[in-house]
Nucleic acid binder design. Structure first.
Ligand code: SF4
Ligand code: SF4
Lengths: 147, 147
DNA sequence: AAAATAAAAGACAAATTAGTCTTTTATTAC
DNA sequence: GTAATAAAAGACTAATTTGTCTTTTATTTT
């Protein structure tokens, strides 16, 4: 459903939302190590996110990627819009050319409920709120220190 | 989530379950036309399904692919086992190395509910029952004659 | 037996996704 | 100003998925 690029992007943004600030930046190397994802791959993804205003960056010594309060007003769907080509919520689970309540496929009920729930989760709260929720509930964006 | 190969496979098996019999076989060309999928691609998929006993086939004039009552005792998960490499239900939606109730990711609740529902739909009834349900409920495996 | 038909098998080609590596540019520290 | 640092940019490679094409084999019809 999600490409690796999108998965890495979401986790990286959540990582920065929880840990970074304009005074505390993280290089692509640190992020790569923290999330256990390929460094140069995540670097390119982070650059796209900077361009679209979802995160911020600074060059040179002490530089790196970070999030501002302004950045944190974006939501997860904004991330997907930047990374993913089409709209993943438009694709038919069984490969029919269009997807909707008219002309439902045999798994329509199950899939559309899932899509709706995800859409709420990803679209109805900003990154700040999502990140707070992750912290509060103790869900994980890396298993680096767990496994 | 599912590869094109799996999507085509599921739809092709449901098509044969509803329309075929040992007396009424369908060539890869007919199936390709009915479902609007690439002929030679679906042909190779169908061959795998024959090999694993999910459908049957006959060569020569009047030959083609079809399902027997024995074939129809398989379920959709059996199809996925043949076509898909790993277990799609084991992958983490956000790309964590393992997936489970311990160490949940931020979308665990939503995703695991979806996976459970799919697992029931795909695993707890055979193709015969699934196909009957599709016919009864009028859900679609092609939009060829609809759009 | 010969011709026609259709699956089986497998070699290829194209497209997408994933990942790596190098060069350039901007910033900071000295 | 020079050196060090780290993002930005982009070329490049590898892997996977998707799709096509050709040849072979089995079956049926005449
Ligand atoms: S499950 Fe329903 S919503 Fe999803 S692709 Fe099929 S028809 Fe569309
Ligand atoms: S959502 Fe839960 S079950 Fe799904 S991958 Fe994440 S941790 Fe695993």
């Amino acid at each position: 459903m999600l490409s690796n690029a999108s998965k890495y992007a979401i986790r990286a943004v959540l990582f920065l939302a929880e840990n970074s600030s304009s005074k505390n930046k993280f290089g692509s190397k640190q992020i790569s190590a923290a999330l256990d994802v390929p460094q140069h791959f995540i670097a390119k993804i982070l650059q796209k996110l900077v361009k679209s205003g979802i995160i911020s960056s600074g060059k040179g010594p002490g530089g790196g990627f970070y999030t501002t309060p302004e950045n944190l007003k974006k939501n997860v769907l904004d991330i997907l819009k930047v990374i993913e080509k089409g709209d993943i919520f438009d694709e038919c689970f069984l490969g029919l050319p269009v997807c909707g309540d008219e002309n439902p496929c045999p798994v329509h009920d199950i899939v559309s409920k899932f899509k709706d729930a995800l859409l709420v989760k990803f679209g109805n709260q900003d990154i700040k709120s999502f990140s707070d929720e992750v912290k509060r509930e103790g869900t994980l964006i890396t298993l680096k220190n767990v496994l």
